[in-house]
Amino acid sequence: MRLADLMGARVIDVTGRDIGHVSDVRLTEAAAPSRRLPGLHVAGIVIATRRRSRLLAYDHRPVDAPWPLTALARRATRHALWAPWTAVTAHRRPPRTGEPGTVTLDQTAASLTPLRDMHAHWNSGT
């Protein structure tokens, strides 16, 4: 499997509703004893709920300053959602090159954490 199969994939929630697309994939470095394989593990996906949204890389961490960028970042991420990889029940590759794949979740969109709520947690750790 390749990252390109996930990036841009349509995200389907547990009710079968298309809630957006995968805008980014967050990777965390795991130590050897904690996992079978050491290295970069997929921690979860950032879901952009707007059709054309790419979040301008503000999905990685919050922008604290200057204030115009802070305002822009908040506006860009206000509809974005975070889904941990444990919430992903299935992922299908694109049917043909250039078309999006599909990621299925075990939750509804309403039960997912807004991306802005994850920012403080991430920023303290990275």
Partner: peptide, 26 residues
């Protein structure tokens, strides 16, 4: 692009960085 392989716990691990136009196309 990045190559992903499954781990025993169901997560995906990055196994390699892919290079070249055939990796970029998708």
């Amino acid at each position: 692009d990045l190559e992903l392989i499954p781990d025993s716990d169901g997560s995906l691990v990055v196994s390699a960085v892919l290079i070249g136009p055939t990796a970029l196309a998708p």
